[in-house]
Structures are given as C-alpha cells and as structure tokens.
Design a protein around this nucleic acid. Structure first.
Lengths: 188, 188
DNA sequence: TGGTACATGTAACATGTTACATGATTAG
DNA sequence: CTAATCATGTAACATGTTACATGTACCA
C-alpha cells in the first residue's frame, strides 16, 4: 500500500478538511486566516490541489450547493496521507525578502529612494504587527489553554514583526534619513 | 527601447557581476554567502538564468578557463536591467515555515514527537544565530561605516534568529516538555 | 590510483503566479 | 437593473527543486 505523498500546501487543505467538508473558496479563506501568516497559497493552487487530490482519492467531491459551490470531504486515504505528512520532520523555513536584496545592493540605489523603500516597508510591518496584536488581545480567557497551537503561531507572527521593526529602528540614520534629505519618502 | 525585465534572482547575479566577471560556480558561492540568508538559489537556477541572460544580451560569456570554467561578464544592457530592477519598489517578503504548519496542526501530532521537532529546530536556529554572531564579531573596525548594507542584512539575520529563539523559549511547557515525557527527543 | 573538490549542464518534475473566462446570487 | 460578492475553473507562464550525467584537476 504505497501512500500518495502530499506537499505541505495540499496537506494543509487536508488538515482543514478534517473539521468539515469545504469548497475551494472556503479553503482559501480558511488558509488565509489560519496559516496565511507563514504559508501563502493562491486560489489557483487550491483548485488544482483539490482536483489532483480528488483524482488520487484523498478527497471526495460532494453534490454542488449554492452558486456552483463544490464541497469536498476528506477520505480515509486523505486522513492517512495527512498523517504521514504531519508526522514527518518539517523542513527548515524559507525566507525570501526582496527588501533585503535591495538593501544589500544599496550602493546602486539613490539614498532617498532606499529610505523611501524602507519607510514603506516599515509602515507595512507596523500595520501587520498592530493587526496581530489586536487579534491577540481578543483571545478570550480559557481559549489559550485549550488551543495552544494557533496561539503559538500567532505569537510567532508577533515576535517576527517586532524583530523586523526593531531591525528597522536600529538601521543607521544614514540609511533611513539620507544626509541633506528633508524628505525621506523618495518623492519629488 | 523595451527593457528585458529580470526577476530578483537574475538581478542578484547581475548585481554580483558588477564587481567582476564570474562563472556560475562562483556566483552560487557568492550568492550563498552574501544573500543566502534571505534569498536562496540553486545551482540549476543559476546556470539557467545565466544562459537565459546571455541569450537576452545581459551578460556575455568569455573564453573558457580552467576546468571548463565559463566566466560571464555583465553588459551595458545587463547594467540597465539591473538598475531598472533595483529601483523598483521591492515586494513584501515571503515566509514559508513548515514547522509552524506542524505546530498549527499540533492536535494531530503526538506530544513527544512535536516536542522533538521543536527541539531539533530550536537547535538549528541556535546554531544559525551563533554563526551570524561569529561573523558579526569579526567585522573589522571601520568596515561598518564603509559597508553599511551587508552589515544591515547580517543584523537582520541576527534579529530574526533571536526572535525565533525567543519564541521557542516562550512556548508553553506542555509543548516542549510533554506531560510525563522524560524524553523530549521523540525517540523510543 | 583513488578520493575530493571543482565545474557545467540537462531533464523531469513540482510548485507558484497571473491573466483570463464564466456564471450565480444578493443587496440596493 | 446593476454593482458587489461569491464561486469555480483553465491556460500560460515563471520559478524552484531533484536527479542525473559528465568531465577536470589536485592531492595523498
């Protein structure tokens, strides 16, 4: 009995389908909400993985609902494939940080422009952190003890964003406020 | 004059080729050393991008050297393509953190096993941090002022790894030392 | 002569992104 | 009736990974 080996994206969909049958649309929303922070997926991918997993017998399409809605339910084979995946030692993470490439090649970027990029991204990370912290603050009493896992991933997001912001804050002034540059927004 | 639009990986190669002509092999090593921390590339990709950029006229192959060594030099078109890339606003980063998926689906993982995974990864991050810090400690006086950019990217690595380790440290005890679990290495 | 590090490349595959095309249902 | 939201899907392309195949040069 050779097991169909799923990738992390497909496995995550199977993970969510443990809870209830869902259509691609819901899975996209669920994934975005629950793992979007450290695992991105696109709509196209979801539909493709679902079709592929259906062919492999890991999920089963149910009857169409409202608006062509196509629900999928996990099968026993799907549960087995998910288990095989979740018990494997996870790979190391991949980070691809284009801003850091730009910084590394900073010699080729006009100072005000680099400062502009840094300002934009710092702002974005500040917003992201605020979002996480708001979510964190809304965790009800008792939820935490019963659901340590999602809480831990949220805490990772917070730790990460704080580290990024601290990094921005410690950048040499020459990088964020170019000499003689009244403007650091790169415009003009 | 339509510019050939390069991706970040190809652009990085062009960035390194500004300094001197290099062969694929050197570029792999250079990239690993200078941007490997936040941007991974594989050998295959490098050779493919080089071939593709050569076709597009962004780089030019020189005469073969020792051991079939094939050096490439950047062209004016290459410099233009690089500049166009480096002046564009960088995309947001992508993080794909398989361990966090495993944590999120922790309900499906035996506690000792999850603790084992966490221990392995914590160890790995500790080693990575030690490596960065060693590199950081070896930065000579005066280097920093003249080369703020690579220093900043190294500082990012340090900030990131510290945040990850702090996150590990704050994980609930139940996750890293499962109840009744003398062993947290997942063996046995 | 045998192992290691150097060096290039292809083929096949897996994964991820963007653009496009279509249609249903609901709210105003 | 019309705009927004819900919902699915394909096609084309871009990017990234793994496995394979080949050969050079040095050193012990």
């Amino acid at each position: 009995m050779s097991e169909y080996s799923v990738n992390a994206t497909a496995a995550s969909l199977l993970g969510f389908l443990h809870e209830q049958p869902m259509a691609g649309w819901d899975l996209v929303a669920t994934a975005e909400e629950r793992i979007g922070n450290f695992w991105s997926i696109t709509r196209s991918q979801v539909y493709r993985e679902l079709a592929s997993m259906a062919r492999a017998g890991l999920v089963e399409a149910g009857p169409r609902g409202q608006r062509e809605r196509q629900p999928y339910a996990i099968t026993d084979a799907g549960r087995a494939a998910f288990e095989a995946w979740v018990l494997r030692e996870p790979d190391g993470e991949t980070i691809r940080f284009p801003l850091l490439l730009t910084v590394m090649f900073g010699d080729y970027v006009p100072p005000e422009r680099l400062a502009h990029f840094l300002a934009i991204h710092r702002e974005r990370h500040a917003a992201q952190l605020a979002m996480y912290e708001a979510r964190y603050a809304e965790i009800p009493d008792g939820y935490r003890a019963a659901n340590p896992f999602p809480v831990a991933t949220l805490e990772f997001g917070i730790a990460y964003e704080r580290a990024v912001l601290a990094w921005f804050a410690r950048l040499p002034a020459s990088m964020v406020v170019p000499a003689g540059g009244e403007r650091s927004d790169g415009t003009g």
